[in-house]
Design a protein around this nucleic acid. Sequence first.
DNA 1: TCATGTATACCAACCAGTGAATATACACAA
DNA 2: TTGTGTATATTCACTGGTTGGTATACATGA
Lengths: 203, 203
Amino acid sequence: MTVMARPGIPTRERIISAANALFYNNGIRAVSVDAVAAKAGVTKRTLYYHFKSKDDLVAAYLAGRDQPNLALFRKWFSEAQGSLPAKVEAIFRHLARSARHPKWNGCGFLRTAAELANLPGHPAIKIGAAHKKKFEEWLRATFAEEGIVEPLRLARQILLLLDGSFAVVLLHRDPSYMETEAAHALIEAALPVRASRRVRAGR
Amino acid sequence: MTVMARPGIPTRERIISAANALFYNNGIRAVSVDAVAAKAGVTKRTLYYHFKSKDDLVAAYLAGRDQPNLALFRKWFSEAQGSLPAKVEAIFRHLARSARHPKWNGCGFLRTAAELANLPGHPAIKIGAAHKKKFEEWLRATFAEEGIVEPLRLARQILLLLDGSFAVVLLHRDPSYMETEAAHALIEAALPVRASRRVRAGR
DNA sequence: TCATGTATACCAACCAGTGAATATACACAA
DNA sequence: TTGTGTATATTCACTGGTTGGTATACATGA
């Protein structure tokens, strides 16, 4: 395995980086603490100095994905041209493109929640739930600014489509399931009619 | 096809039943072959007589859920009263009710695919993909009979909502995420206008 | 007899987590 | 400057238990 002996990066971050690669690619219970330590170029005892247990390490792995993930969604949205539906569709399109990469393995938060479903109070699941809540709240606020009447309802509907896409595309290994028409239709239906025309014209 | 001495149920089925309970509740890698054998009241050697490997057992576990699961969806649909959207909504409502049970743990097919995402060709994943395909095809045929113009597209959209609901409700442990409005809106939008009125009137 | 099915006992590899010792860095007193 | 204390950071060696899978033998019914 690759020994990451880079001395400039703090040990704790190197361990999280190694955990991220291994847990995301292979799942939680399929990866041993020894494997993470080896990939980080650190003895297991050192790992247990920085993290009190494997569960703690798993939580740190997901916590490390929270902000970067949200930032990516915001970037895809804000850099897209056109109407509100077009900007939301851009998220789906970028995600479909990511899903074409051979190392893509779905949503780390959802996969962890699925694997640890027998441990409902697990810290990693709480972090995953908080992450999705943040995304939902960002969507809601965005929709509210655009004059959507029930922005929370629409935000949750888009969330269902997005997380459903993660699940189905992972199962079939077919990114074409990540379609944009449903999101488009739901947003158009929620837009006030006049605003809909105005925004659709290019805004 | 020989019948077991004690309970009258063939050994192989008892093992699959035990595997179903343990794998669905706890996940694949969290459950040892020994645990399945013990729950089935059988030694591990007997289990390995009926299944050539743990992977084989996992595949059998999902295969055993395929038909009952599809039958349940069809039953919920066909027993519901009213228009096409109302009958599809019935599936979501029944699912939300199931999700309130404390032992509910989402969709076994999706969870297995998520946990074994690092083994794309795994037989269990193939069975899961085939299961979802069957459901998609049943939806498509149903929609086609109702005169939907692009029945496959709508079937896949409903699938995204359904599997998204599985994922999100499992993550948040909140069945209220399993809403029916999005499905309703998408179906109404896909129905031909006149047929929509007729069906909505009570069929 | 012979195929099917079950049991006891066992394996080497691996698992999460720990005990005890040590190395490094810096603060502060002599 | 030098010595010492202390907190941080890291290592080696190890534990008790579990893992998927197997070798061998025994039972049973057709």
